[in-house]
Computed example of a mutant assay.
Amino acid sequence: MSQASSHPPLTPQFCFSTTALRDFLRLSRSTIDDSITQNLNALLAPSRSGFDPSSTSSRQSQPPGKRQIDQQSCKSFKENVLFPSWQARSDVLNYCAGVATSEDPDDPDILARQIESERDRERVVDERLDPYSARFYPQEARTEMLANIVRNERSVENIVRTRTWSIIGERCGVSRDGWGDALDRWRKGRETNNELLR
């Protein structure tokens, strides 16, 4: 069974290194969500009931990939692997969203953007001579680029979690809650446990 993914140390440099940010999210998703069927199949333990030699003499009506998993194994997987991984990814996206909305005094391209903006103000445009001369595409600040990446990754995260939750619902039994409600309940339970340990 897979282990819960934990996030790397959160720094603005980690967020602005969009390759590192996307690699973390991709690796976490591939380990937990993209291989959810394999993770759930690992919870099936046919050895617990013992080997029945007669099981090989007839065809099984349900393939192993569709068998129901006992509730305790499902609960343990959700609480110890799935939800902590989702929480780690949420923590990273929330942190990077905060970085994207804060001021960035260390932006290496700020001077180049200021010069580009000044040149654009001084430019004389005669659209009769060149109708495309009025085009100006200012360079995006890295906080704006990061905000776009975080927005896109949150959309992907929503799709991935919805798909994963539907597979868990099929294999572990139908849950009335959506993945958001279940994750919130797990977070509250964890906070309560942490308060009791203090």
Rank of each mutant, 00 (worst) to 15 (best):
V174A: 15
A141H: 08
A45G: 15
N194C: 11
R171N: 00
P108Q: 03
E127N: 11
S90Q: 12
R22W: 09
R135G: 07
S2Q: 13
W186I: 04
F77R: 10
E79M: 06
V99C: 02
Q13W: 05
E170M: 07
E153Q: 03
S90A: 12
P84N: 09
D52F: 10
K66Q: 13
D184V: 04
N158G: 13
S155L: 11
R113L: 00
L43D: 01
C172R: 00
R163D: 08
S5K: 10
Y95I: 02
L183S: 10
V160R: 02
T143G: 01
R151E: 06
T18Y: 05
E153Y: 02
C172G: 01
R151N: 06
V92Y: 02
D181V: 06
W165G: 00
D184H: 09
I110E: 08
Q60P: 04
S28G: 03
S6Y: 10
A45R: 14
C96V: 03
L111F: 08
S166C: 11
G178C: 00
W186N: 00
I159V: 14
A42H: 10
K188N: 05
L197F: 07
R29D: 14
C172W: 02
V124W: 07
Q87M: 09
N193C: 09
S90T: 13
T18K: 10
